[in-house]
């Protein structure tokens, strides 16, 4: 547990020292929200969710890419793979929550007649999915440029696809749109339950895939044998 918390703490320390990154993490959802501010309130809130998802995914992508060279030596220092990826994910979840809180307050101040619990749940789903999603891209693509372009493609797809189309459900952040509909348009609870189920399934799938990728990359190699110390 100590190892996991230490990795989470160091991930947070690294990210919070990058002031420019922090500023952009807050700026991205803000810009998304402001662009849609004058139109229908549901549009601005959905854009805000997408901005949060994108910002946290990007932070996760860069955190995962930056740790590529450090992780093998941490493995040699006694860490197990799950302590490394779960610790990093934990740090990113905490950061994501810190990014989401001011925007939740913004919606409370700015918009009336919303189901605020739904807004909060949707933001939680965005953060829950975004951290393992960004980490997975960072783990699969060794160079940051390729990772960023892939992330851009996914988010653009998410924006352009009709949420009612079957393909939209395959995008990672579909859950936040569904919950937003429940929170803004006061639709039936089916939207909420579908959204929560989607977020839970996608998060678990992403964590399992991240575990698989890290497990392979940081595996104990078969040619290396450990003999007892004599």
């Amino acid at each position: 547990m100590n190892r996991l918390v230490t990795v989470a703490e160091m991930t947070l320390r690294e990210l919070t020292r990058r002031r420019g990154v922090l500023l952009l993490l807050l700026l991205m959802p803000l810009v998304f929200w402001m662009i849609r501010r004058d139109s229908y309130v549901g549009q601005s809130i959905r854009a805000l969710f997408l901005g949060i998802s994108w910002a946290v995914s990007t932070a996760a992508l860069f955190a995962a890419s930056g740790a590529r060279e450090l992780e093998p030596r941490l493995r040699l220092a006694g860490y197990r793979p799950h302590q490394l990826y779960l610790g990093r994910m934990l740090g990113l979840w905490v950061l994501g929550l810190a990014v989401a809180v001011p925007f939740f307050l913004l919606t409370v101040i700015d918009a009336n007649n919303l189901r605020y619990a739904g807004i909060a749940l949707a933001m939680l789903c965005c953060v829950a999915v975004a951290a393992p999603f960004g980490m997975l891209i960072g783990a699969l693509l060794p160079r940051e440029l390729e990772g960023t372009l892939l992330l851009l493609t996914v988010v653009a797809m998410q924006m352009l696809l009709d949420p009612a189309s079957p393909g939209a459900k395959l995008t990672p952040f579909w859950s936040s749109r569904e919950i937003a509909t429940w929170a803004v348009d006061h639709t039936d609870a089916g939207y909420l339950s579908r959204g929560l189920l989607h977020a839970a399934v996608v998060t678990v799938l992403l964590i399992v895939t991240v575990a698989g990728v890290f497990g392979v990359r940081l595996r104990r190699r078969r040619h290396l044998h450990h003999a007892p110390l004599t």
């Binding site: 320390r13 020292r17 060279e69 450090l70 040699l76 044998h225 450990h226 003999a227 007892p228 110390l229």
Partner: peptide
Amino acid sequence: AGEVTVSGRLGYCPQQGGTADFL
């Protein structure tokens, strides 16, 4: 091909990298 047997704890120092820029 080939095998490596190590007795005891292993330490490794890479030629470059292996540190975290912001720590």
